[in-house]
């Protein structure tokens, strides 16, 4: 047991940070809001990748596929089908889920390492198909029409606020929903799978069903993150919307370095990543080389990442996903 005051202190800081984020449009300038919008998208992606890799034993190298589907679906519903943007956002999430079902049915014939490469093949297929769709600008992509953008606010400043609020809302919902999933009956099985899959299976956890649930769980969130990327870039294109570096490679580094298999890890990792990227912006490819080296070092020497190291030094379980039994100590 760690000290209660420390735990309360850390949670108070966390609550203040969330409050500051909620009050963001009144506290920060447009530039910071744009960076934070990007941060919330990346946090969402990191939470989803961590749920799969850290708990369900599905290592996805194809997360960018569903991000791209979300972006393209949003473009299709607004620019081509002329629906309201507020109808298009949930429809994009549903479309991503609908695409995820057949993808899952095919690639789940592969297991472990094979499945990892299978997700990559699936994402590549989705990207190539997106480049073939009529009306979406082919291989070079196309801009989101101005009337669609204007629905989010007539002035640029208003739109920045709206996009910020949407990204924050997405990250918060993704976080709370995943936390609740991990605290549920399914989550108990997932935590058992994280710690020892064979033992979890023999203790009655339905591994296949849990994996299917997790894989489909991530799809709508990835699709919504995709909608946000389309709004942020104001265009859809196969190379940008399905970008493996931005939506998967960076995310893998974030989760591995921050701490795989915990809820705190991906968030810590995302903060570290944004700080590091700001510092190393001028070094081009070197920053990815550095991230690669750090993550290999982390896997070899501290497999639970930065958060795992913090826990060993006595950091409290800030966001407990387990259920702690009340300890009643009898005084003699």
């Amino acid at each position: 047991m760690t000290s209660k005051p420390l735990l309360l202190g850390v949670r108070a800081i966390l609550a203040l940070a969330v409050l500051a984020c909620l009050a963001g449009p009144w506290l920060f300038d447009a530039n910071s809001l744009t960076v934070l919008t990007e941060f919330f998208i990346v946090v969402t992606l990191a939470l989803m990748w961590n749920l799969l890799a850290g708990y369900a034993d599905i290592i996805s190298v194809g997360q960018q596929g569903f991000v791209g589907v979300g972006a393209y679906a949003f473009f299709g519903f607004t620019a081509l089908a002329h629906l309201s943007v507020w109808a298009a956002v949930p429809l994009a999430a549903l479309t991503t889920l609908a695409v995820a079902v057949p993808v899952m049915a095919v690639i789940f014939r592969l297991r472990t390492a094979y499945l990892a490469v299978g997700t990559w093949v699936a994402a590549d297929v989705l990207m190539l198909i997106a480049g073939k769709l009529p009306g979406f600008g082919g291989g070079s992509g196309t801009s989101v029409p101005i009337p669609v953008i204007k629905q989010f606010g007539a002035r640029l400043g208003d739109r920045i606020d709206v996009f910020y609020a949407m990204a924050l809302g997405l990250a918060l919902i993704a976080f709370v929903a995943t936390w609740m999933l991990l605290r549920s009956r399914v989550g108990l099985g997932l935590t058992a799978m994280r710690d020892n899959e064979e033992a979890a299976g023999s203790a009655g956890v339905d591994l296949v069903r849990t994996r299917i649930l997790c894989f489909l769980w991530t799809a709508p969130f990835l699709g919504l993150a995709g909608v946000m990327t389309a709004l942020e870039k104001l265009r859809v294109a196969p190379s940008a919307s399905f970008n493996i570096t931005d939506w998967t490679i960076d995310v893998i580094f974030i989760v591995v370095i921050g701490g795989i298999g915990s809820l705190e890890g991906p968030i810590l990792g995302a903060i570290l990543f944004f700080v590091l990227r700001q510092q190393l912006a001028d070094f081009g490819a070197w920053y990815l080389i550095l991230l690669g080296l750090i993550s290999i070092g982390v896997i070899l020497f501290e497999p639970r990442g930065f958060w795992g190291a913090c826990r060993r030094w006595g950091a409290p379980d800030i966001l407990p996903v387990g259920h702690e039994a009340e300890a009643h100590v009898l005084k003699r």
């Binding site: 290592i59 390492a113 081009g284 490819a285 990815l288 991230l291 690669g292 896997i299």
Partner: peptide, 24 residues
């Protein structure tokens, strides 16, 4: 002996290092 995750992630890191090293 530590499962499939570490070796996948190590070779993944290696892949990114080689790609970007060659690019530089």
């Amino acid at each position: 002996g530590k499962g499939i995750l570490p070796i996948l992630l190590v070779t993944f890191g290696l892949s990114i290092i080689i790609q970007n090293g060659l690019l530089e």
